[in-house]
Computed example of a mutant assay.
Amino acid sequence: MCRSIKTLREPYASDVTDDDVRAAALQYVRKVSGFRSPSTRNAETFERAVEAVAAATQTLLDDLKLKHVSRD
């Protein structure tokens, strides 16, 4: 859907920051809304959507159960 959103879970990414999660959320909201930068009257709605998507993304990453492979 949006090629600039990167996978944020291990083993594809490590040390994922809040900025990484927010950047992915911003890209998602931009793609879905069709706006790169919202108008003044839509800015608050746009920002709430970014915050909600970022929160949902962080919850998903925190709750994923991943199989860890031992590299011994």
Rank of each mutant, 00 (worst) to 15 (best):
residue 63 D to V: 03
residue 58 Q to V: 05
residue 11 P to W: 03
residue 27 Q to D: 14
residue 47 E to Y: 01
residue 22 R to Y: 14
residue 54 A to P: 11
residue 62 D to K: 13
residue 45 T to N: 06
residue 45 T to E: 07
residue 35 F to D: 11
residue 58 Q to G: 02
residue 15 D to I: 00
residue 16 V to L: 06
residue 70 S to C: 02
residue 58 Q to K: 15
residue 3 R to S: 10
residue 50 V to I: 15
residue 39 S to V: 06
residue 37 S to A: 07
residue 59 T to F: 01
residue 47 E to R: 13
residue 42 N to K: 14
residue 7 T to V: 15
residue 64 L to N: 05
residue 54 A to T: 06
residue 68 H to I: 04
residue 4 S to P: 00
residue 3 R to A: 10
residue 18 D to P: 01
residue 13 A to F: 00
residue 31 K to V: 06
residue 11 P to L: 05
residue 63 D to R: 11
residue 69 V to T: 08
residue 37 S to M: 06
residue 34 G to L: 08
residue 60 L to H: 14
residue 46 F to I: 03
residue 36 R to T: 12
residue 15 D to L: 03
residue 6 K to Q: 12
residue 12 Y to K: 09
residue 19 D to E: 14
residue 52 A to D: 13
residue 62 D to A: 13
residue 48 R to Y: 03
residue 17 T to Y: 08
residue 59 T to D: 11
residue 13 A to G: 09
residue 17 T to S: 15
residue 34 G to Y: 09
residue 55 A to R: 14
residue 56 A to S: 15
residue 15 D to C: 06
residue 70 S to A: 05
residue 31 K to I: 04
residue 36 R to H: 03
residue 13 A to D: 10
residue 45 T to V: 11
residue 50 V to K: 11
residue 19 D to K: 09
residue 72 D to T: 10
residue 60 L to D: 08
residue 61 L to N: 08
residue 24 A to F: 00
residue 65 K to W: 03
residue 10 E to Q: 08
residue 45 T to F: 04
residue 61 L to T: 08
residue 6 K to G: 02
residue 11 P to E: 07
residue 32 V to T: 12
residue 20 D to C: 10
residue 72 D to N: 11
residue 19 D to N: 06
residue 32 V to D: 11
residue 23 A to I: 07
residue 40 T to Y: 05
residue 55 A to K: 14
residue 17 T to R: 10
residue 54 A to G: 08
residue 31 K to N: 09
residue 6 K to I: 03
residue 8 L to V: 04
residue 27 Q to E: 14
residue 24 A to Q: 05
residue 12 Y to C: 07
residue 32 V to C: 05
residue 34 G to R: 11
residue 34 G to D: 08
residue 64 L to P: 05
residue 5 I to Q: 11
residue 60 L to Y: 15
residue 51 E to C: 02
residue 70 S to T: 04
residue 37 S to Y: 03
residue 23 A to V: 09
residue 16 V to S: 05
residue 43 A to K: 15
residue 19 D to R: 06
residue 58 Q to L: 07
residue 7 T to P: 09
residue 55 A to P: 05
residue 44 E to Y: 02
residue 66 L to Q: 11
residue 9 R to A: 08
residue 60 L to G: 04
residue 45 T to Q: 08
residue 68 H to W: 04
residue 18 D to Y: 01
residue 34 G to E: 10
residue 21 V to G: 09
residue 24 A to K: 01
residue 31 K to H: 14
residue 41 R to I: 13
residue 16 V to N: 06
residue 65 K to S: 09
residue 43 A to M: 12
residue 39 S to C: 05
residue 55 A to I: 00
residue 63 D to L: 07
residue 53 V to L: 02
residue 4 S to V: 07
residue 38 P to Y: 01
residue 29 V to R: 04
residue 6 K to C: 02
residue 49 A to I: 00
residue 58 Q to A: 11
residue 59 T to C: 06
residue 41 R to K: 15
residue 21 V to F: 03
residue 12 Y to M: 10
residue 18 D to G: 04
residue 51 E to N: 13
residue 46 F to S: 03
residue 14 S to K: 09
